[in-house]
Simulated scan of single mutants.
Amino acid sequence: MKVNFYTSKREYDEKKEEFNKAIISVVEKGISTLGPEVVKLEDEIKEFTGAKYAIGVASGTDALVLASDILGFNEGTEVITSPFTFFASASCIARTGAKPVFVDIDEETFNIDVNKIEENITDKTKGILPVHLFLQMADMDKIMDIAKSHNLRVLEDAAEAFGMRWRGNSDEYRHAGTIGDFGIFSFFPTKTLGGYGDGGMIVTNDEKLYEMAKIYRVHGASKKYHHEYIGYNSRLDSIQAAVLSVKMKYINDSIEKREEIGSWYIDGLKDIKEVRIPKILGNQKHVFYVFNILAEKRDELAEYLKEKEIGFSIYYPKPLHLQECFKYLGHKEGDFPVAEKISKEILALPMYPELTREEVEYVCNVIKEFYAK
């Protein structure tokens, strides 16, 4: 049996008429940048997340760069983040001139170890960029307490966290991205809310930050050819917005289906002593954006899955502090031992709402076969 790591085709086949209608409608009405489709999606994101403001941009990476620039992550400042995440979470800091300061991760959740943040704060520290990774949020209570006591800005990288909600010590759940000064989402196709190409969104509850983000996405101009800032060209595509609005109608069903698939994996893998499943910590509602395991003989298992035509991915095979482009920071192997350890063990299995139980059982049985050899 062949099991794809991800495919958009099943969802398209199920909702073909709706997707086709949405795309053709944009073309028939006349394509416009930041047109009604983008405004509609921004309104839908605000309603779903509870954010006061939402700004559609060209990608999750652009969202991070714009927000970093606006928050003053620039030359001479430092921003604390995780070394175990996608490249953009740290490159956005470097891109705007600031220095990424890495803090090791918690081995059970893969998120930044909040107990190590404060010891890395200096008089140059401008902000904290927590990453909500894979299926759960970082401890936003502790992060916001630290930020408040040291007068720091907080940019939440919620690229993988659409639908995740944090309650912590609060009276109510707050959606990922809505707790810090800015939050960002990615609509890359594999995401929980994914488009048919690149797309991103910035959210905030601060009116001034919202107004600046709107200006920054159109070359820093409040009106055409009148530039207050040196901004960017980063506008969410109208066709992508139309596709995403179709998907927003089914987002709760999609999240619930991911939860069900996650339960199949947990049940199917629970008796394999060579496999560990991440723990969900804190008072929060998680979402299975991907389903990761920690596996003994990870690389050999990956090869076996490949032989059996089972898709997989490794998030992330090399921590950021060991990437060539960050060599200037002066880190060496062993500086962040937990991140380095996890990078050698982690393996992502297929996870998308259209997976069948038969496929998940096949994946689990193949993993059992591998360790029984």
Rank of each mutant, 00 (worst) to 15 (best):
Y6R: 01
S8P: 13
D13W: 01
K16N: 06
N20W: 07
V27L: 14
E28K: 06
I31M: 09
S32H: 05
V38M: 00
K40G: 10
K40Y: 02
A51T: 10
K52S: 14
K52Y: 14
A54Q: 04
I55Q: 03
A63C: 04
V65G: 02
I70H: 03
G72K: 02
N74W: 07
G76W: 00
E78S: 05
E78K: 07
T81M: 01
T81P: 12
T85P: 07
R95E: 12
R95H: 14
T96S: 09
T96P: 04
G97R: 05
V101S: 04
I105D: 14
D106Y: 14
K116G: 15
I117D: 12
E119T: 13
E119A: 06
I121P: 14
D123Q: 12
L129P: 11
L133S: 06
M137S: 11
M140E: 07
I146H: 04
I146G: 06
K148E: 12
S149Q: 13
H150V: 07
V154I: 11
L155P: 07
L155Y: 14
E156W: 05
D157L: 01
R165C: 03
W166A: 04
R167V: 07
Y173T: 09
T178A: 09
I179K: 08
G180Q: 11
G180E: 08
D181L: 02
F187H: 15
P189A: 00
T192P: 12
G194W: 03
G194T: 05
D198W: 09
D198H: 10
D198M: 03
I202R: 02
V203P: 13
M212G: 09
A213H: 08
I215R: 03
I215D: 12
R217M: 13
A221W: 02
H227C: 05
E228K: 06
Y229N: 08
Y232A: 13
S234H: 08
S234P: 05
R235C: 14
L236E: 13
I239D: 03
I239N: 12
A242F: 06
S245H: 06
M248P: 13
I255K: 02
E256P: 02
E259N: 15
Y265L: 07
D271H: 02
I272Q: 05
K273S: 12
P278M: 01
K279Q: 10
N283F: 02
Q284Y: 10
Q284R: 07
H286D: 13
F288K: 06
V290H: 03
F291L: 04
E296Y: 10
R298C: 04
A302I: 10
L305G: 04
K306M: 10
K306N: 15
E307W: 06
E309V: 01
F312E: 11
H321Y: 08
L322F: 08
Q323T: 13
Q323F: 04
Q323L: 05
C325A: 00
C325P: 08
K327T: 11
L329M: 07
K332H: 15
K332I: 12
E333M: 06
G334R: 01
G334Y: 09
F336Y: 15
V338L: 03
E340G: 12
K344H: 11
E345S: 15
L347R: 15
A348W: 04
P350N: 01
E359I: 05
Y362D: 04
